[in-house]
């Protein structure tokens, strides 16, 4: 319950999105906007989950398809495909997900520590599991995930 101690009684507002049948929650303050999937310009020799870059009002923003990255969900691109534009680590990054379901507030007592297995994500990026009625929301530290080495989004320090 490391987490519960750290952020005592602070309820947090989350944006919940779906990847396959799993529901993930991220800190809503990291979300800049939600938009449809546009044509991207693909980046040469980039990993397959990095779809490319888009022009977001004059900014070049990379788009990561989390469905490919975690190998869940149907990888199709149509008018329902959703891109969440995130502001993490002073960067703007877009992630492709299966859908955005809702915004909800989770209080600390609704959070449980994640077990050491059970998700497509490395548990290092999982802050906890939230229970809302019958649903389980996987709380993701999206900043840590996006800046991690295996996302290949950020230049490694040594390079």
């Amino acid at each position: 319950m490391e987490l519960a101690h750290k952020e005592d009684d602070v309820s947090r507002e989350l944006l919940v999105f779906a990847l396959g049948r799993e529901e993930y929650g991220i800190d809503i303050l990291k979300v800049q906007e939600i938009r449809g999937y546009d044509a991207v310009t693909s980046i040469a020799n980039a990993p397959n989950f990095i779809k490319g870059v888009i022009n977001l009002r004059g900014n070049i923003v990379p788009i990561v398809d989390l469905r490919i990255k975690f190998n869940i969900g149907n990888v199709t691109y149509d008018q329902f495909t959703v891109v969440i534009i995130l502001n993490v680590a002073q960067r703007t990054i877009g992630i492709v997900v299966d859908g955005v379901s809702d915004v909800m507030t989770l209080s600390t007592e609704q959070l449980r520590q994640a077990p050491e297995f059970g998700s497509a994500l490395d548990t290092a990026y999982i802050l906890g599991l939230g229970t809302v009625e019958e649903r389980m929301i996987i709380l993701v530290d999206i900043e840590k995930l996006m800046t991690s080495a295996d996302m290949a989004l950020v230049e490694a320090v040594a390079a």
């Binding site: 310009t41 040469a44 870059v53 990379p62």
Partner: peptide, 27 residues
């Protein structure tokens, strides 16, 4: 010229990106 590294990282063979007249990104 737009810097690719602002939000992404350096891509070998690519000096930067730009936005074309139709709004698309070109490297």
């Amino acid at each position: 010229v737009k810097n690719l590294e602002t939000n992404y990282r350096r891509v070998s063979g690519v000096a930067g990106a730009t936005i074309m007249g139709d709004g698309h990104v070109a490297f």
